[in-house]
Simulated scan of single mutants.
Amino acid sequence: MQPKIKKLSKDISLLIAAGEVIDKPVSIIKELVENSIDANSKKIIIKIKNGGKDYISITDDGIGINPDELELAFESHATSKLNSKDDIYKVSSLGFRGEALASISSVSKIECKSRIKSLDYGNLIEIKYGKVISKSKIASNYGTQIIVKDIFHNIPARLKYLSNTRSESGRIGQFIQSVSMSYPKISFELIIDGKKKYHTKGDNSKITIFNQLYKLLSNDLISVDFRENSYQLSGYISKPNKNFGNRSRMNFTTNGRVIKNPKIFYSIENAYRYFNKNKRFPIFNLNLTIPFNEVDVNIHPQKHEVKFEKEAEVISFIYNNILKVLNSEIPSENIKINIEQNKVISQYENSEFDQTDF
Results as ranks from 00 to 15, higher is better:
22 I>E: 05
44 I>W: 01
100 A>F: 11
203 D>F: 01
157 A>Y: 13
271 A>F: 00
333 E>T: 11
284 F>E: 00
307 K>A: 09
168 E>A: 02
281 F>G: 01
109 K>I: 07
174 Q>R: 13
273 R>K: 15
202 G>L: 01
66 N>I: 13
220 D>S: 08
107 V>R: 02
149 K>C: 07
110 I>K: 01
54 D>S: 15
178 S>F: 00
221 L>D: 01
284 F>L: 07
340 E>Y: 03
229 N>E: 13
185 K>M: 11
273 R>G: 08
329 E>L: 08
179 V>F: 00
268 I>P: 01
356 T>W: 01
197 K>D: 13
253 T>P: 01
114 S>Y: 09
253 T>G: 03
184 P>I: 02
38 D>H: 03
164 N>S: 09
217 L>T: 10
26 V>W: 06
287 N>A: 06
56 I>N: 06
245 G>E: 14
49 K>I: 10
77 H>G: 01
175 F>I: 02
156 P>Y: 04
124 L>I: 11
230 S>H: 14
164 N>Y: 06
72 L>C: 01
134 S>D: 13
87 D>T: 07
356 T>N: 15
36 S>Q: 09
55 Y>I: 08
203 D>T: 03
164 N>L: 03
168 E>I: 09
167 S>L: 15
92 S>A: 10
137 K>C: 07
173 G>D: 11
346 S>A: 13
68 D>P: 02
10 K>H: 09
165 T>A: 04
290 I>K: 04
210 F>N: 00
262 P>G: 08
223 S>D: 12
81 K>Y: 14
60 D>C: 05
309 E>G: 03
75 E>G: 06
229 N>T: 12
254 T>A: 11
103 S>R: 00
209 I>D: 00
